[in-house]
């Protein structure tokens, strides 16, 4: 992996809370991870786990109010993005850290030609002139594989297919050669053959530009094919952090195991899928103990009363589970409950 590469992003104890009439929702509740140059980190989890809020928090794009970064820091090349002024932050957005979103249909402005939508970032951050910015944006469209880019640049988004719009989004995000690209479910709304094209494109451009990529996704297949390391999120926490090989070969957290088990497999036949019973706890009312305890087949008393920490294992995997600590009794196993 890229251990020798430069550390560019370090998230420490990041908390994002939403205050509404129903109370405080802890969408992101103290997460840590790092990203190096040229590396791809996957953040995976099911809807409501806080993965998208994490990505929006890094660029401070959470809707506020009601959202608020309630604690922690996001160090980008040593500077804390959380405490920066809005002006300083704007110089980072779209320039040094870029983002692409899930819905290419709605993420582009419907009344502005796509070339202009790319060019405006160049004029803003690179201080390019009108003509130079336009030429560069045509060049970017060509780079992301859009046929007849001169013509397409003048078109409005509704004249482009879904796959092409996502290519435009990528061109826009990469126009200023950022050091970090945050891709929030970039292929979820696309057909599989188009998804394959887009993932390939991101990979190719990453090698070219050398940026770090944070891939936010619910699709473990996408993680396996694109990421170097993975953070699995559940109810606002990271429950497991491992290299992609380790995570798929030897998932440690019961939630990760459950997630992998419940996937229908494309290369083998199964009679019945193994499911995770129950549902995610309400973000307004998190349990005192482990957040997965109510659905966990291995649950012991301590899981209900105390929340486990994300603990380093000997193989470098981090896991938030009492099972991998000295407090674990293993009594249930012995009794043969499982």
């Amino acid at each position: 992996m890229n251990k020798k590469n430069k550390l560019i992003l370090e998230v420490k104890g990041l908390k994002t809370h939403f205050t509404t009439k129903r109370g405080v929702s802890k969408a992101v509740d103290g997460i840590d991870f790092t990203l190096h140059k040229g590396e791809t980190l996957g953040i995976v989890g099911e809807s409501g786990c806080g993965k998208s809020m994490t990505s929006l928090s890094i660029l401070r794009l959470i809707p506020s109010p009601p959202g608020k970064i309630a604690g922690g820091s996001v160090l980008f090349k040593g500077k804390d993005l959380v405490t920066m002024t809005e002006d300083e932050m704007r110089k980072i957005r779209g320039n040094e850290i870029s983002m692409i979103f899930q819905e290419p249909m709605t993420s582009l402005n419907p009344v502005i030609p796509v070339g202009e939508q790319i060019a405006e970032a160049l004029r803003l951050h690179q201080k390019m002139g009108k003509k130079a910015a336009w030429e560069k944006s045509v060049e970017m469209l060509k780079l992301v594989g859009i046929p007849s880019p001169e013509k397409r640049a003048k078109q409005e988004p509704f004249q482009l297919s879904g796959g092409m719009r996502q290519r435009v989004m990528i061109a826009m995000a990469l126009a200023c050669t950022p050091e970090v690209l945050i891709a929030d479910e970039p292929t979820t709304a696309l057909d599989v053959t188009i998804q394959a094209q887009i993932l390939e494109l991101i990979k190719e451009l990453q090698t070219k530009i050398g940026m770090g990529v944070i891939m936010i996704t619910h699709d473990l297949g996408v993680v396996a094919e694109t990421c170097d390391k993975v953070a699995v999120m559940y109810a606002g926490n990271i429950v497991e952090h491992a290299s992609t090989e380790q995570l798929f070969a030897n998932p440690k957290h019961p939630y990760t195991q459950g997630l992998l088990n419940s996937l229908p497999k494309i290369h083998e036949d199964q009679d019945e899928l193994i499911t995770i019973d129950g549902s995610v706890p309400s973000p307004y009312n998190m349990p005192a103990g482990c957040r997965f305890a109510s659905r966990c087949p291995y649950r012991e008393d301590i899981c209900i009363t105390h929340q486990p920490n994300l603990i380093n294992q000997s193989d470098g995997v981090k896991v938030r589970c009492w099972k991998y600590t000295d407090e674990w009794t293993g009594n249930r196993d012995k009794e043969g409950v499982i």
């Binding site: 092409m164 394959a196 297949g221 694109t226 090989e245 798929f248 992998l260």
Partner: peptide, 19 residues
């Protein structure tokens, strides 16, 4: 084209061109 949740599986992928 389907992404397979198994990083050890290296495949020769057919990526279709165009829309």
């Amino acid at each position: 084209s389907i992404p397979v949740p198994d990083p050890t599986l290296k495949r020769d992928r057919v990526i279709l061109k165009g829309d």
